[in-house]
């Protein structure tokens, strides 16, 4: 579904991604793991078009999206829940969620999807009229994921999914993610908690200083010596 081939990206003179290749197949949850500064967020931003690649190719759904403008990539079916959530702080939760459906033209379905998202994240129900900036961290993440879902994307990318959240909230979010995956949504998730990520993903990629150093199905990565040593501390 998503194919990243030999991608390189840089901030000015500083190259962050080197020759990165990865694939996400229809219906999968793919985890992207690696330490701080490895380039995980940069990779997601390059896929969603917020950053332009230096070299390499991006293909989504059989179409070349290399270097396409962000809004076009979004409309082609990739939703990006960025690190730090990037909610519209001054707008209400409901407005934030509806903004997710901004480019959709199927009005009645949007209302149905709003009900669906509130079903997935019941705690947002009571907060609908509240400015998103006043939500708790967990609720903000739910709102951000919900906003991503409102676009009815084919692929949902979530960056630093559990950062700064209480373990119980993480667990709840993970469950929700699995539910929506079972409903058919493909996910690419950046997660610093490697254990959580690999336990729930189908496959994983390990990114170190801008290079993909390991990949494979989630269980084999969990058993991998290097992963255990570097990320799991065992």
């Amino acid at each position: 579904m998503l194919k990243v081939e030999n991608l390189s990206a840089a901030y000015g003179q500083v190259q962050v991604l080197w020759d990165v290749s990865l694939e996400v197949h229809q219906g999968e949850i793919v985890a992207l793991i690696g330490s701080n500064g490895a380039g995980k967020s940069t990779l997601l931003s390059t896929i969603s078009g917020l950053m332009k690649p230096r070299a390499g190719a991006l293909t989504f759904d059989g179409r070349d999206i290399t270097g396409a403008p962000t809004d076009q990539i979004a409309r082609s079916g990739i939703a990006h829940v960025p690190q730090g959530r990037h909610l519209f702080a001054g707008l209400t939760v409901k407005e934030n969620l509806l903004m997710g459906a901004y480019t959709r033209r199927d009005g009645p379905h949007v209302q149905k999807d709003l009900a669906w998202v509130l079903d997935l994240f019941p705690s947002l129900q009571r907060r609908l009229a509240m400015p998103a900036g006043r939500l708790s961290g967990g609720e903000q993440q739910m709102c951000a994921v919900g906003r991503g879902l409102m676009a009815r994307p084919k692929l949902l990318m979530i960056d630093e999914f559990s950062l700064g959240l209480a373990p119980i909230v993480v667990e709840q979010l993970v469950e929700t993610i699995q539910t929506i995956n079972q409903e058919g949504l493909t996910l690419l998730i950046v997660e610093q908690d490697v254990q959580v990520a690999l336990e729930h993903a189908h496959r994983g990629y390990v990114l170190e200083t801008g290079h993909i150093v390991l990949s494979g199905d989630a269980q084999s990565l969990l058993d991998n010596e290097h992963v255990r040593g570097a990320y799991l501390g065992v």
Partner: peptide, 17 residues
Amino acid sequence: IAIREDEDAARSLGINT
């Protein structure tokens, strides 16, 4: 308003900012 609140997020939602 989305652009004012967060331009990158607006772009990521498909808005031609």
